[in-house]
Design a protein around this nucleic acid. Structure first.
Lengths: 341, 341
DNA sequence: CTGTATGATGTAAACGCTTACAGTAAGCGC
DNA sequence: GCGCTTACTGTAAGCGTTTACATCATACAG
């Protein structure tokens, strides 16, 4: 395929009149090399356009200098910040990034287990696992072989402990619903829940319940639907709610993308936001600010979760201990969709 | 780090009472192995939980089974479909995906050239290069060594030919502006241009000019600003336009994200869309439909470009010839922001 | 029965690097 | 001058695969 046979470390060593060991040490900075020879090596590398063969480095050093990111699916506005956070920090730490969406794989005939072959042990030094992308069995296996792993937006299984990082879902939602109740006198608040296999769903629901309870408002099953953290699903969920003909004066959409869907459904039905119903989300994605009216939501440091996760992973790879659970703070962002001005 | 020393192909061979060559052939299906021994090998692999060491395979076979995706930056709603398209098709083809944002790298002290080390020749079998992520020198080098490359949303340099794939920018914009002029009688149409180093910018501008010209409308520099294919930049660009106090009755925002920013600026200034000014975008991202009013735009098959690009790359890797230029069709999507109902 | 394909398997040499180990030269205290 | 560090540098043995080549049955034509 390639025209030129690529230069190897031997070529560089020969041209510089030195041994491969010295060249290797210079390249990796793994030992001091005299200035004079360093210059020669540098020149030789330049001249030959030499780049180390990573596979060879991996094989010899038994390190891949790569981390894997496992996602359930790549879609929605949510994953851009995740990816950006992971990528930036990974590069910074000198790792390259292998991305794998487990959903694409599941649809594929090659099918389940593929990701193991592609990402697992041999190919990465560690794995970043996003909520709902890997099943418990596999997690358990990874844990049992002591493979470095960090869970994102997902709690560690009870049976064993894997470091997990996510945001303050419960308190964030608590503040959000409190605001709706206390500052805008809303009492019948629809909740569009996220996917059932998602930990964020659980905690957000808990925050919702706690806020209601604190204000003496009963939890009503009629006001609950599944929005799936997804615009289209949320839109349909909202339509179902509307069909029920029940009274409500606010909607907590689960996340911002769902809020967008909920708004559409409401508007289709002629509702005014926030007069007829306040709508609030969670995440504070870029789009939140651009909705009409601008969305009141909870700011979630998604990108920071991602880069912090890389940090934790790299620490683990280096053999350091890391906290079992990391929770990044969230805070309420008041815009207009709740009735604030 | 890992508890168990992992089994090698030798272990498998020993357990099965065969040679490593036979095991290797069985694993890769690179030659026929008698049914009897195949069974033995399979059993041995199972028993040992053997998985091939990819670095070793790469080194020995000189293939990585990985492709690299180079992006200028990972942000905005635009990259999610790109990534999804690439990822899905890559897996399908049996390749893993290395993602690298060249901007993150540029900011990094380690600095320029890093990506070469991480992604280039040795680590991937081919590269997908998104507009503006790699400079001409590097492209030229890749071309000169015959390394498989596909350019996305970027034309091939004139000096040499690299396969490129993008969408019908010019005709798409042409249809869009024609619509504004012919169906909505707009004649003073602001254009928010994309980044200057971006080919899409050039072609979209050309479509804009051609449409004006065809309708006998002069091209006015006053109506042009740089939106940078970016919400915030576009918002500010729009504000500058408003400050000029010039008359206009429509805005072609360059892309959908810019359209969102333009809408915000217009609304801030008390303009009604589309009555006071029509606003149109390009791409037809998810968000287009969710803006208020829903955005008239040009549908661009972003995900398809991405997956087609993988297809082209894999063909090249396999030694097949591929077309120098691929243009995927776009079409006008009329929603309300232009005045349609 | 010999000669020759044919098919399945084994042997061992790469692949390009890292790194343990073994020098070697220079500096220093005495 | 001697021995002991200190500071580099070189030699060569892996790392776990693939694969060209050799080998060895077996089958089949003549």
């Amino acid at each position: 395929m390639l025209n030129h046979k690529r230069p190897t470390i031997d070529d560089v060593a020969r041209l510089a009149g030195l041994s491969t060991a010295t060249v290797s040490r210079f390249i990796n900075g793994s030992a001091v090399v005299s200035a004079e020879r360093a210059a020669k090596i540098k020149a030789a590398i330049q001249e030959l356009h030499y780049t180390p063969h990573l596979a060879a480095q991996m094989l010899a050093s038994n390190k891949t200098r790569a981390i894997g990111l496992l996602l359930p699916t790549i879609s929605g506005a949510f994953f851009a910040p995740v990816l950006r956070g992971v990528e930036t920090r990974a590069i910074e730490k000198g790792y390259s990034l292998l991305v794998h969406s487990t959903q694409a794989q599941a649809q594929n005939a090659a099918g389940k287990g593929t990701f193991k072959k592609i990402l697992a042990e041999h190919n990465t030094d560690g794995l970043l696992i996003f909520a709902a992308s890997v099943d418990a069995t596999e997690l358990s296996r990874l844990h049992s072989i002591g493979f470095p792993v960090v869970l994102l937006h997902q709690a560690s299984p009870k049976e064993f402990s894997l470091p997990a990082i996510t945001v303050e879902n419960k308190n964030g939602v608590r503040a959000l619903i409190d605001h709706l109740i206390e500052d805008h006198q809303r009492r019948r608040i629809v909740q569009l829940r996220g996917p059932e296999n998602h930990d964020d769903t659980y905690w957000r629901d808990l925050g919702y319940r706690q806020s209601l309870e604190a204000h003496g408002i009963p939890y009503e099953a009629d006001l609950i639907e599944t929005g799936g953290f997804n615009t289209e699903q949320a839109r349909q969920a909202m339509r179902r709610i509307l069909t029920r003909g029940i009274h409500f004066d606010a909607v907590f959409a689960g996340d911002d993308e769902s809020a967008s869907g909920a708004m559409m459904a409401l508007r289709e039905a002629g509702w005014r936001i926030p007069q007829d119903a306040a709508v609030v989300g969670f995440d504070d994605l870029n789009l939140a600010e651009h909705l009409t009216p601008p969305l009141t939501t909870v700011h979630s440091p998604i990108e920071q979760v991602a880069s912090e996760a890389v940090e934790l992973l790299v620490k683990q790879i280096g053999g350091e201990a890391v906290p079992a659970e990391t929770l990044l703070p969230t805070y309420l962002v008041r815009r207009n969709s709740c009735g604030c001005s």
